[in-house]
Design a protein around this nucleic acid. Sequence first.
DNA 1: TTGACATATTCCCATATCAGCATGTATTGT
DNA 2: ACAATACATGCTGATATGGGAATATGTCAA
Lengths: 122, 122
Amino acid sequence: MARAATTSDAFNAIAEPRRREILSYLVLRERQVGEIVAALKLDQPSVSKHLGVLRSVGLVHVRRNGRHRLYRTNAVAIRPLHEWASTFERYWQHTLVRVKERAEARMQDNPESDPDTPKEKA
Amino acid sequence: MARAATTSDAFNAIAEPRRREILSYLVLRERQVGEIVAALKLDQPSVSKHLGVLRSVGLVHVRRNGRHRLYRTNAVAIRPLHEWASTFERYWQHTLVRVKERAEARMQDNPESDPDTPKEKA
DNA sequence: TTGACATATTCCCATATCAGCATGTATTGT
DNA sequence: ACAATACATGCTGATATGGGAATATGTCAA
């Protein structure tokens, strides 16, 4: 039992960089598989397999048109990931405020100091 | 070459559900490894290894205190994930608006209809 | 029907990943 | 120094994963 299957977990599905590229590419507009192959310079079977994973977790929609299949990113399916990350938002804001405060304190002590060169330990 | 190593990619690091739990747990406040073990009911070596992964991608900070190690989530490191997901935000908003519009249109046509029973294809 | 085209699926292989167990290492108390 | 505590690391085995090549499926056109 290694990890949750990529085919059942959106977090796992987007762990693969190519799949993230595909999602970004397909969010602009519907595309045929062949277009993805050309645009991202991947092998066709590879793209089909990635699309299969994305399909199984609902991250893309398919529509058939003749012998083509038109894929599009299902943006709503990304929302849970966004919301999970959002639960950390207030904490990183605290961090950023503290960083800013320290920078300003340094400027008060020594207006000539370079903000990118830390003079104190965090 | 399977996928980017979990130890070098935050997306991959959070693909593991237990690591997400650990991050949520450690964002509230600093904790010793033993506390994580007890709270999440995982084996100690398992927790140490997950912490190792999280450390290597900068998702947690460690501080030593005697024979304890105090870990805390480094929330800022989650920001890139949040921002990646945000690039899809305007698209899912479109979707939600359309869903809402269709629901309202149904109510106009037939105020008795059940909103959860679709009467038309998307 | 036959053939060309678009895409999906299957098989194999190298590697990554995780859990479990055992062991190593650092720190504290006596 | 010695034992106990708190973690980290190493090893092994089962499984998941992605790429590549080959093949299957489905659709259109003649």
